[in-house]
């Protein structure tokens, strides 16, 4: 396969970037998007050019490191997978692909397709601690958890923090990410004591980072590699409004 790429090249956070066109020959349909970029980078390096920088780690779709826009869609055309699991068989010979980094004020571009997502870490840190009994391990079935809640908590916990929700949102909102993090502890009895404080503090940090608001477009859910539902956003809204009304602060 021959693929033409328009890749965003930016040498540093301060530098102005632009799109650069690359023709990549000999692409196998079995290559992943990142393997295709590895091949291109080898060729670029052999010519003495700087390779295209992109984040990656597990390449199994579970770590949340990779991610960029492929033709205007976060993580590319396939549903519920990351770019590392997007294979070239999803495209045709002769296709032209535009690769662009996540764009958000809170996600500054570090280089090429890499963005700084530490805003997400600060939102998680703002969530604080969970009160648990330390010492000997409690009996596993001592705390009953409703099956529906356990399933929902698990769905929320599946968030890998890749940032696709922010990238796809027309408002660059981090509502899906934050709501998944708020809900995955808020749905379990272990997270209950700090539930109100956690919702207030995490939303405050999310706003402080400069993310936008939710317009209920649903773009985030459509590109989430873990298929996390916007129902969690409503749950966070409910948690925040209730917490604000009843908290002592």
């Amino acid at each position: 396969m021959k693929i033409t790429l328009n890749v965003w090249r930016q040498s540093s956070p301060e530098a102005a970037g632009s799109f650069v066109k690359y023709d990549v020959d000999g692409v196998s349909a079995d290559m992943s998007m990142l393997e295709m970029l590895d091949v291109l980078n080898d060729r670029l390096e052999s010519k003495g050019e700087a390779p295209i920088a992109f984040d990656h780690d597990c390449r199994e779709g579970i770590c949340g490191s990779c991610g960029f826009m492929i033709n205007g869609v976060a993580h590319g055309p396939e549903k519920e997978i990351t770019v590392c699991q997007t294979h070239m068989r999803s495209f045709k010979d002769g296709d032209e692909l535009t690769l662009e980094p996540w764009r958000a004020m809170a996600f500054p571009v570090m280089r090429d397709l890499m963005v700084d997502r530490s805003a997400f870490d600060r939102i998680i840190q703002a969530g604080g601690y969970v009160s648990v009994r330390t010492g000997s391990a409690p009996e596993a079935n001592a705390t009953p958890v409703m099956k529906e809640h356990a399933d929902m908590a698990f769905e929320a916990a599946a968030c890998i923090g890749c940032g696709a929700c922010v990238a796809a949102c027309p408002n660059a909102a981090a509502m899906l990410f934050t709501s998944a993090k708020v809900s995955h502890l808020g749905l379990l009895p272990q997270g209950e004591p700090e539930r109100d404080k956690r919702a207030i503090d995490m939303v405050a940090q999310m706003d402080k980072e400069g993310f936008g608001h939710c317009s209920n477009h649903g773009e985030c859910e459509a590109v989430c590699p873990k298929g996390i539902s916007v129902n969690f956003i409503a749950r966070m809204n409910r948690d925040l409004l209730k917490a604000t009304l009843r908290s002592s602060r």
Binding site: N71, G72, R103, A168, H217, E219
Partner: peptide, 8 residues
Amino acid sequence: YSKWQPQR
């Protein structure tokens, strides 16, 4: 974005 495709 130079290119953005609405999904939902």
